[in-house]
């Protein structure tokens, strides 16, 4: 193992160099494209401008109302999909028969791009936050319910039998056998559900809405304010990455 590591070391260094060079070339090409090669400012803004706009967005705090709306929609969507997904998943997982009835059905619906239902939700619930919450809840329900079924439904039979024969009652069975066995799988599903809910909320804001982070990007695009749009995109990606990192950390903590 050690020898292998030493053999890898120069590779690792050169791969870092390649990565840095790649990034530098991309940035340089971006800069030259806007300053020397005459690419339209509307299609590709100057990176220096984008940087100034990014600082302005963060410093001015102009993002706060949109961020609040997006986070509110996300909280609503995730609360619904988490409570329904875990409850329904647990109830289904209590019976082999129910698992065999419902799991293929849920998996089949999960395979459809559910974003297609957005126009129906907009018709039913309007362009406001309600349709985004409904879509986010629908899309994130499926990974959560499926992983809850997988977590609670496929606990090792021997563990269950052993606990029963030692006289465990239902509560003890849940607390000491089912929950510890199922928790990692359920938590992984919740993390996936969170990410999916966040992305669907932003996606539905982008497609049809009045407000929110996704809507703000579209607004800037329609006004041809490309430099600020690029900066805002970077900002939104940073927020998504931050939220995902927070949820991953919580998942890691909760597991132990």
């Amino acid at each position: 193992m050690n020898g292998d590591g030493r053999k890898n070391a120069p590779h690792r260094l050169s791969s870092r160099l390649v990565q840095v060079a790649f990034l530098a070339i991309v940035l340089l090409a971006w800069f030259l494209a806007t300053t020397r090669w005459g690419v339209s400012r509307i299609l590709l803004p100057n990176p220096v401008n984008v940087w100034h706009q990014l600082i302005d967005i963060v410093a001015s705090g102009a993002f706060i109302p949109d961020l609040r709306i997006t986070l509110g929609e996300l909280a609503g969507a995730f609360a619904i999909s988490m409570s329904l997904g875990v409850t329904i998943g647990y109830l289904i997982s209590r019976s082999r028969y129910l698992i065999r009835v419902f799991e293929p059905l849920l998996a089949a619906i999960y395979a459809i791009p559910i974003i297609l239902f957005l126009p129906l939700y907009v018709l039913l619930l309007g362009l406001g936050p309600a349709s985004k919450i409904a879509l986010g809840a629908t899309i994130s329900f499926f990974p959560i319910v499926l992983s809850t079924i997988a977590g609670f439904g496929y606990v090792d039979r021997r563990l269950v039998t052993a606990a029963r024969s030692m006289g465990a009652n239902n509560i003890q069975m849940f607390r000491y056998v089912l929950l510890p066995a199922a928790l990692p799988v359920v938590l992984a599903g919740l993390r996936l559900g969170f990410t999916v809910a966040l992305l669907s909320v932003i996606a539905s804001e982008t497609i049809a809405s009045f407000a929110g982070l996704g809507h703000h990007i579209v607004d800037l695009a329609e006004n041809m304010d490309t430099a600020r749009m690029f900066a805002y995109i970077v900002f939104v990606i940073a927020i998504v990455a931050f939220l995902n990192a927070v949820v991953s950390t919580i998942e890691g903590r909760a597991r132990w």
């Binding site: 990565q19 790649f22 992305l199 932003i202 982008t206 996704g214 695009a221 995109i233 939104v236 990606i237």
Partner: peptide, 19 residues
């Protein structure tokens, strides 16, 4: 060199760059 970059790009929320 490039697998980390590919995985990073794959993980980005692409919906933000649709416009």
């Amino acid at each position: 060199s490039f697998m980390p970059i590919i995985l990073l790009l794959y993980g980005l929320p692409q919906i933000t760059i649709l416009p």
